[in-house]
Simulated scan of single mutants.
Amino acid sequence: MSAAELLEAIAAWPLASAMRRSAILYLVVNAAHILAIALLVGAIVPLDLRLLGFFGNTSLEVLGPFLSRAAAVGLALVVVTGFCLFSVRPAAYAGNPAFLIKLVLLAVGAVNAILLQSSDAWRTVAAGGPIAGTVRLAAGISLLVWPGALLAGRWIGFL
């Protein structure tokens, strides 16, 4: 199957057709996407800041696992709702440079989070131990990547 055929198949998906026909359904999915972004960014930014040394009086033992799970739920919802929005006009989005940048940043952010979560350094932090330099580096990358993806997503409509 070629890329063009795949994009056509996505556009023919029943939910995509329903969203094109119903402004209300599109509105609801778009609002859900925005709420998912809020959950993702709203959880990850405070966690990243804490890992970088801000809010030193808050316990990473409690805060870390909770906020990382909340961010993971937000990311899952972002991907699902984002795919639904993409399916309405997949060919147009696939050719949009801002959309492509957003996808790259989402991938970098997800890989960064997965690598961090699977590291011994994260397990040490989550157990109340010291914050290693690799954890701080991952937090710094995260603090750049997720807002960058958000900005790229807003940029899509301007290109």
Results as ranks from 00 to 15, higher is better:
1 M>N: 03
2 S>L: 03
3 A>M: 08
6 L>K: 09
10 I>H: 03
11 A>F: 00
15 L>V: 14
16 A>V: 14
17 S>H: 14
19 M>R: 14
23 A>N: 15
23 A>T: 15
25 L>H: 01
26 Y>C: 11
29 V>L: 11
31 A>L: 13
31 A>E: 12
35 L>A: 11
36 A>I: 12
37 I>C: 03
38 A>S: 14
41 V>S: 08
46 P>F: 10
47 L>G: 02
48 D>P: 06
50 R>W: 11
50 R>Q: 10
50 R>E: 05
51 L>D: 03
52 L>C: 15
53 G>W: 03
60 L>W: 05
60 L>D: 07
64 G>I: 08
67 L>P: 00
70 A>I: 07
70 A>Y: 01
71 A>W: 13
74 G>P: 10
75 L>R: 10
80 V>M: 10
84 C>G: 09
86 F>K: 04
87 S>E: 07
90 P>W: 07
91 A>I: 12
92 A>V: 04
93 Y>W: 13
97 P>L: 02
98 A>G: 05
98 A>N: 03
98 A>H: 10
100 L>I: 14
101 I>P: 07
104 V>I: 03
108 V>L: 10
108 V>C: 02
110 A>S: 03
117 Q>S: 07
117 Q>T: 03
122 W>L: 05
124 T>A: 08
126 A>G: 01
127 A>C: 06
132 A>D: 01
133 G>A: 14
133 G>Q: 09
136 R>G: 04
142 S>K: 11
145 V>E: 10
150 L>F: 09
152 A>V: 01
152 A>E: 00
152 A>F: 06
153 G>Q: 02
155 W>M: 02
157 G>H: 06
158 F>A: 07
158 F>S: 09
